[in-house]
Design a protein around this nucleic acid. Structure first.
Lengths: 250, 250
DNA sequence: CGCCAAGTTGACGGGCTTCAAACTGTGTGG
DNA sequence: CCACACAGTTTGAAGCCCGTCAACTTGGCG
């Protein structure tokens, strides 16, 4: 199941950390990130990575693919809290909270880089400035959840879906995965429904409406934004909450 | 506007920190928290404390009263992300993210203790273990937002309101403000609507239903839970995500 | 080719919104 | 002490967004 860790495999992770940092990393800091022991594993689509109630002893970086954080009601209804793109460290929180309150699952096939908590703690002790960087990354994740909550609470399905597409294209674009406003969208419509807080039937109708408005094209598993300004307008999308550098915001 | 900081005034804050810590604080750590320069200010109900777009140079602890974090759509619809109880440090994130993506406002009259970012940073450098405690507090806040999102996305108004009341009574109870399952509920029904993601008209009907089911009493600005087990059941409330000690969970 | 999951569409119903009006309750000023 | 104002609460009626149920179509894959 586990490959030999290849330095090159963790590039998305390194790039992400450099993006989030407000300062230039020193060679020593970069080396610490590049050499921290990491077990790389390949996961199938729609596989749980960690589950609510787990007490993990390691965190992981998403090296390729798309994953999601979700919670479920007793009745089995899922709510996706956020999607994760390559470079993200979705369960950094497990470093400080023993019991997980969320599930994290793959959406597409994913490559994951697992790192022991002890190793992370040692790295943060040795390089205190990296502490701040991980703080920022975690707080940005929290900001995305809040923006997403404004969506589900106060916008209707049409704007909500437009907003999700805006965010995904922007975030994937920031890691080079959305050239020409086109990206893979590995989730099915029932899965999208779990993110949007609506039913798959209504997802379908809403996709149809966005298509009819000329804002997007969605065929197979590929999403293309045909009218970026229009989509942003429909979504009231303002990427400030993503805390990206200007260059990375379209 | 500013009072002389009284050591006693920050008790809720100190108690909260000790609750969140997984270890016993040393006298030095306790002293650092007790003597960090804090400007105490009294705020009226429904006053913004900080606004989206601000670049604050200080954070604050909520010493008394109830506050809330919210965001708004362009159309002016508000979504309350979370409520804050005495002892909370709602905008700790401003220590690491320059531009705020949220608004924080008082709900009732509040006493706030403002602390300069520089002072916090110095304290965390001098007492590294406190770093971990603030991490935990911030991650718990994020967990509450996610639980709240499961609510708005996947539960209907009745369960949603039951859940909000369960959470408030539990959190207020943990700081001694909900004896006998009774607490102040300073928000009006239109304000509750902003938290629940529904209209004030529907809030009213839902309160009526919870009352008719014998679960709660709500008169004036006081909430009493008449059937704690029943309310928990209706809400599917499981306080694990609050990460309280067992003793503080009912 | 045939299977099966996903996508698509229609009809109907329900939860919630919207609009409107009446009813509190509390504070204020004459 | 009462009249008045005003904000919050409560209730009704009509309609819309979205859910539910069901059927049919499309597309990927062995």
């Amino acid at each position: 199941m586990y490959e030999t860790p290849q330095p090159s495999g963790r590039d998305p992770f390194l790039r992400r950390i450099e993006t989030v940092a407000l300062f230039r990393l020193t060679d020593a800091e970069r080396a610490a990130l590049a050499t921290i022991p990491m077990q790389v594993a390949q996961f199938e689509p729609n596989q749980d990575i960690i589950r609510e109630g787990d007490r993990p002893s390691r965190s992981f970086a998403l090296l390729s693919g798309i994953a999601c954080t979700y919670k479920s009601t007793r009745a089995g209804k899922r709510q996706v809290m956020s999607y994760h793109v390559p470079g993200d460290v979705p369960d950094f929180q497990s470093l400080f909270l023993e019991v997980l309150d969320i599930n994290i699952a793959t959406v597409s096939a994913c490559r994951l880089g697992f790192v022991q908590h002890d190793a992370v703690r040692a790295m943060l002790r040795a390089h205190p400035r990296l502490n701040e960087v991980f703080w920022r990354a975690t707080l940005i994740d929290a900001a995305m959840v809040r923006e997403w909550m404004l969506n589900t609470g106060r916008r209707e399905a049409y704007a909500r879906m437009a907003h999700l597409f805006c965010e995904l294209v922007t975030r994937l674009g920031a890691v080079g995965l959305a050239p020409d406003l086109t990206c893979d969208l590995p989730m099915t419509q029932p899965e999208l429904a779990d993110a949007l807080g609506i039913t798959s039937v209504h997802v379908n109708r809403t996709v149809r409406d966005l298509r009819a408005a000329g804002l997007i094209a969605l065929r197979g598993r590929r999403l293309t934004v045909n009218d970026w300004a229009g989509l942003q307008e429909a979504a009231e999308f303002d990427p400030t909450y993503l805390h990206l550098r200007d260059a990375e915001t379209r």
